[in-house]
Amino acid sequence: MGFKLLSKLLVYLTASIMAIASPLAFSVDSSGEYPTVSEIPVGEVRLYQIADGVWSHIATQSFDGAVYPSNGLIVRDGDELLLIDTAWGAKNTAALLAEIEKQIGLPVTRAVSTHFHDDRVGGVDVLRAAGVATYASPSTRRLAEVEGNEIPTHSLEGLSSSGDAVRFGPVELFYPGAAHSTDNLIVYVPSASVLYGGCAIYELSRTSAGNVADADLAEWPTSIERIQQHYPEAQFVIPGHGLPGGLDLLKHTTNVVKAHTNRSVVE
Rank of each mutant, 00 (worst) to 15 (best):
I50S: 03
V265P: 15
S181G: 01
G158A: 10
A19I: 14
L250E: 02
P152F: 06
T14Q: 09
M1G: 05
Y202F: 06
S162H: 09
L13V: 09
A51D: 14
G245S: 06
E172H: 05
L249M: 06
T36L: 10
V212N: 10
G245L: 01
L82P: 04
L127W: 01
A218F: 13
M1Y: 04
R206S: 14
T109L: 13
L24S: 07
A59R: 04
G105E: 14
A130P: 05
R226M: 08
V112C: 04
P244T: 05
I100S: 06
V265K: 10
Q49F: 10
G32V: 06
H117N: 01
R110N: 14
P176Y: 00
L217N: 15
Q61S: 14
S7P: 07
P107T: 14
P170K: 10
R128A: 13
S223R: 02
A98S: 14
A94T: 10
G131M: 11
L185G: 02
K102Y: 09
A19V: 10
K91G: 14
V54T: 11
M18P: 05
D216V: 09
G240Q: 01
V112E: 04
P23V: 08
T109Q: 14
D118R: 11
Q49C: 13
V45Q: 03
Y135W: 07
Q103E: 15
N92H: 07
A209Y: 10
S62F: 14
Y12A: 13
A215T: 11
A59W: 03
E157G: 14
H180F: 00
T60G: 10
F63I: 12
K102P: 05
R141N: 15
L5Q: 12
H260E: 09
L185A: 02
I100W: 02
S16W: 07
R46I: 13
V45L: 12
G240M: 03
I238N: 01
A111Y: 09
I74K: 01
S208L: 12
L47Q: 03
L185V: 07
S264Y: 05
L24D: 08
P170G: 09
V37N: 07
V257D: 00
A94D: 11
G72P: 02
S139R: 10
G245F: 00
S70E: 03
V121E: 01
T261E: 10
L250I: 07
A90Y: 09
V212R: 13
V256L: 15
P107H: 09
W88C: 01
E33K: 12
L159Y: 03
G43N: 12
P244K: 04
D119M: 01
W88D: 01
N149Y: 08
R226E: 13
V171Q: 02
G72H: 00
I227Y: 00
V67A: 07
P107A: 11
Y202T: 09
E39V: 07
F174Y: 15
S264W: 07
C199I: 00
L249C: 01
L247T: 07
V126G: 07
Y188T: 02
S223W: 01
F116K: 04
I227V: 12
L127P: 02
A144D: 04
R206V: 11
A111K: 04
G43M: 05
W220I: 01
A133F: 14
I40F: 05
D85W: 00
I17E: 05
D52E: 08
P41Y: 13
E44S: 13
S181F: 01
